[in-house]
Design a protein around this nucleic acid. Structure first.
Length: 282
DNA sequence: AATACGCACAACCGCGAGATC
DNA sequence: TGATCTCGCGGTTGTGCGTAT
């Protein structure tokens, strides 16, 4: 390569740091519509002031629909330890053995938990039990304390009541963002070639699988009391479409919203909690 | 109540490899 | 064939939050 590395982007012209709600929405909407054939050009096409690498990382580590969030199970931790012993810090290889987990996430877990545990095993000659207990304790605690524990698009674990509540809360959050419609329109660029991007059926199985979608008595979303849970979800979408001006039946945009809804639970929980204005019934 | 500290995790950075021109 | 581009990887940093003092 010889002449030195050209910077991947002009760092004075790109935004850095935490991703905003609006940026996530743009990225998800764009990728849903057009895919991600070229990360370098994607930010410009999607109207994002971000480096392509940053977009890629955000998508892979956080926004991708099949990314599994929440604490690692004991099995997963054991797998990481074993694989690390055999192949070393090949995080992407290890990640490939753990569906839904990203290399970045595994790397973080390794550095924050597993490495310490292993070194304490070595130094203190601790038995296996300690580590197992540690994992179990963390799992137990996480189920109580972590708001997004056990959350997964990948098709399995969906947390219970709180998800339903949070969907309501997230809707409030969305309602507070009038630019949502504009954002969706911005990424709907007719000049771009449409790339087929199938709707992941698991998204809809997730929606249909919201078997604990219940509102508490003092719910922030009183309109959500319905005869059946499916109806609740259906009406939630209808309401969302109405609020966002998406009257037409655009399943891809629905998918984007669902993805964003879930993904932003964690990061914008603080904002969601801050919202205490009751919804108006549609 | 205020401050310091440690932890967890998202995001950034630089590099290597493969693809393309 | 070599220069350039793009992607993906692994290491590191920055920041927010919870806990201890």
């Amino acid at each position: 390569m010889g002449k030195g590395r050209a910077p991947c982007c002009d760092k004075t012209k790109v935004k850095r740091g935490q991703w905003s709600y609006d940026e996530d929405l743009k990225l998800i909407s764009f990728i849903n519509k057009y895919g991600h054939e070229n990360w370098r050009s994607l930010p410009e096409q999607a109207g994002l002031l971000r480096c392509g690498k940053s977009c890629r990382l955000r998508w892979i580590n956080y926004l991708r629909p099949d990314v599994k969030r929440g604490n690692f199970s004991v099995d997963e931790e054991e797998t990481i330890i074993k694989l690390h012993q055999s192949i070393g810090s090949k995080w992407s290889k290890i990640a490939s053995k753990l569906p839904g987990r990203t290399d970045n996430e595994i790397k973080n877990v390794w550095h924050t938990h597993l490495k310490k545990r292993l070194s304490s095993h070595t130094n203190l000659n601790a038995d296996d039990e300690a580590g197992t207990k540690d994992s179990l304790n963390r799992e137990e605690t996480s189920q109580e304390s972590s708001p997004n524990a056990s959350m997964s698009f990948g098709g399995s674990k969906i947390s219970s009541k709180e998800d339903g509540v949070q969907i309501g809360q997230t809707l409030q959050y969305l309602e507070g963002h009038s630019e949502v419609t504009r954002t969706l329109q911005e990424v709907d660029k007719p000049e771009l070639l449409e790339i087929p991007f199938g709707v992941d059926p698991e998204i809809w199985s997730f929606i249909n699988g919201l078997d604990s979608f219940q509102q508490p008595e003092n719910s922030l979303a009183p309109w959500a009391h319905q005869d059946s849970q499916e109806d609740e979800v259906e009406k939630w979408f209808k309401h969302l479409e109405t609020e966002l001006g998406l009257e037409e039946n655009d399943s891809q945009q629905q998918q984007s919203i669902v993805m964003l809804t879930k993904n932003h639970r964690h990061h914008h929980l603080g904002e969601l909690r801050a919202l205490d204005t009751p919804l108006t019934k549609p």
